[in-house]
Write a protein that binds this DNA or RNA. Structure first.
Length: 195
DNA sequence: TACTCGATCGGA
DNA sequence: CCGATCGAGTAA
């Protein structure tokens, strides 16, 4: 079972909830040669609105941030540190600038490595993320993610945003699904429940 | 036009 | 820890 994520789904929930929801979905890339590669999304980060001082839209609408104001379902790709391409999924309704940075997928840990691994560059900036047309989309392949398999931490590299915004735990990490039988359930010690 | 500084990474 | 490397944003 495998279905392409539709724009509607990317506009219904709030940005932070979507960042968590994307964990376990698959980033699917069709290359020039027609080969299709799918990697499970393992790490995301939410950027939400002009008020969010870590978000590129903090300075409002500019040539670069224009795509963030598009309705959810487009790609936002930009160059960071002059070297690394960063892949973001624009989410939310039109005119609410928000995006989710894809920081990690199976086999690629780190936003710069994700794009390098899948051959993603700025040519995809503004392209649709909700269909095969752009060669890059997201699929739900039925992976179920339990709440406790996800950890939430502060976003990386945004100290400049100040304590309040840098402190938001808007980075979500899915611990790699393990096939092996889980560790034996910790024997519930018969210790008293309360002191 | 002249600056400054990054949503990072790999190597010393 | 440091340098790479370049475009967006800002000030002038």
């Amino acid at each position: 079972m495998s279905r392409i994520i539709k724009a509607k789904a990317l506009r219904a929930k709030r940005t932070v909830a979507l960042a968590r929801w994307l964990l376990g979905k698959h980033l699917v890339r069709r290359g020039e040669d027609g080969r299709v590669v799918a990697r499970m999304i393992l790490e995301t980060e939410a950027y939400d609105g002009e008020r969010d001082l870590a978000c590129h839209a903090r300075a409002g609408r500019t040539r670069r941030t224009a795509v963030l104001y598009a309705p959810g379902g487009h790609w936002y790709v930009y160059l960071c540190y002059g070297i690394h391409e960063m892949l973001n999924l624009v989410v939310g309704p039109r005119d609410w600038p928000a995006a989710i940075l894809l920081r990690g997928v199976e086999g690629a840990n780190g936003p710069g490595r994700v794009t390098k691994a899948l051959g993603i560059g700025r040519a995809l900036n503004g392209a649709t993320a909700t269909g095969r047309a752009s060669g890059l989309w997201i699929e739900d392949r039925g992976m179920r993610v339990s709440r406790r398999a996800v950890s939430a931490t502060p976003r990386v590299g945004v100290d400049y945003a100040g304590a309040v915004w840098a402190g938001k735990r808007w980075r979500f990490v899915l611990e790699a699904p393990t096939k092996a039988p889980g560790r034996p359930r910790p024997k519930s010690t018969s210790a008293p429940r309360r002191a």
